[in-house]
Design a binder for these strands. Structure first.
Lengths: 229, 229
DNA sequence: ATTACTTAGTGTAGAAAATACACACTATAT
DNA sequence: ATATAGTGTGTATTTTCTACACTAAGTAAT
């Protein structure tokens, strides 16, 4: 990230696109910067990679410091390093995306000094972003669009128990298009990686839907065979 | 890459997996190191990113210095940065792959000081590699396996004019499996991105095959629609 | 000129997967 | 009891995938 600039020839940072799903919308976590450059702009959270951290560890730390969450699914996806991308010097940054289920509970633990605030904002109405962060975000969204077609990452955005309608909703939001309910169910069930539970949805004022769980064991057995949406 | 280690906290380099196809085999370009660490080992070509270079430029420069070639298709695919990956300090490296048609002509222009020699070696018989370069290579191969199914990258390994059999051969080598001739032709032609030429193969001692060319225009029109193998 | 050799080039039938499409059921709230 | 809102299901059609074998064309040797 961008807040500290020691006097080195180049700085290596990590920026994260944290995708969150609250049951309704797809959101990302942005911070409002409290320092120059781009003071008062919204930016992706990020930081400099520590001397003894692996890249994945560094990404996990950034996420933890911001949200208090651990064990979240994260994946690096692209390095951005144009000489002009940071006004104060050479900063090469590696982008990660993360997929997070936004529960009602504690999702944000307040935040380091270079940010005024951090906020989950719906991807349908993002503000202008600092640096080249729009580009980084765009590429991140593109990446998960691709990946959700072949890897079981949609479950990372959902609670452990979920309904098929919720799952379909995640696919529709990420892919940005409507899907046919019957065909979706046929297909997703045919992969054989869902376990149907004996439990039903609660607290809804209409017919309660059956709950499912993603079955990691079954998925592990399939490996080699690719899911395809 | 690994040869120069100025006294910085961390060094940022680029390593390249240069895939070449000579009409028969798939090969990669390796250099034999002339310096510690890993003196006398084979390694992927790489170098430190220059202060005013973009990442893509840096990768292109590494390739040019080694082969004299420009305008080659290259793509970054993963960053490797474990704290222990380089015995002499923190080196974060960004991996690129390149796809090169190996003509009879000048493919190698001799080579910087930290290498004894550079050589195209068939991927079916690679030596032990320095650093974590085996891991970098493995991930690179995996990447092009995936990408060749969805993007028209096979043509980068072939001369401008090629036969369908040659094209199939490239797919088979990259994917590591045999394909059915008739089904392959049906499918690849159905994408509509090949232009059949009025020309035939020359210098073969059997029936000459029709030559084709990849039609970038037609491909550009298709965009959005994905090729799928 | 004939023959042997090597690769080019082609079609179809059956199986599997993708798509398009509409209504009855069930739980809750009033 | 009735209104409401989302759940859950089947089929026919089209498209794509797969498996499979022979003839045509050119070259080289005799």
């Amino acid at each position: 990230m961008e807040q500290i600039l020691p006097h080195l020839d180049s700085v290596f940072s990590i920026d994260c696109v944290l995708f969150g799903f609250d049951g309704k919308e797809l959101k990302i976590l942005l911070i409002e910067r409290n320092e120059e450059p781009f003071k008062d702009w919204w930016a992706l959270p990020g930081n400099i990679v520590g001397a003894d951290e692996s890249l994945d560890q560094s990404a996990a730390r950034i996420l933890y410091e911001l949200t208090g969450l651990r064990g979240i699914y994260m994946e690096q996806y692209y390095a951005f390093g144009d000489p002009g991308r940071h006004p104060q010097g050479r900063v090469i940054t590696l982008a990660y995306y993360a997929l997070i289920r936004l529960g009602g509970d504690k999702d944000l633990r307040p935040v380091s000094t270079y940010a005024k605030q951090a906020n989950w904002l719906p991807i349908t109405a993002l503000p202008k972003l600092a640096f080249d962060h729009q580009k980084i975000y765009d590429k991140g969204l593109e990446k998960i669009k691709r990946r959700i077609k072949h890897q079981p990452i949609a479950f990372e955005l959902l609670p452990e128990k979920f309904t098929l309608t919720q799952l379909q909703h995640v696919y529709e939001l990420v892919l940005g298009k409507k899907l046919d309910k019957r065909n979706f169910r046929k297909k997703i069930v045919s992969f054989g990686v869902l376990k149907e539970l004996d439990e039903k949805q609660k607290g809804v004022s209409y017919r309660a839907a059956t709950l499912y769980r993603f079955d990691k064991r079954k998925y592990a057995k399939l490996f080699g065979k690719e899911i395809s949406f």
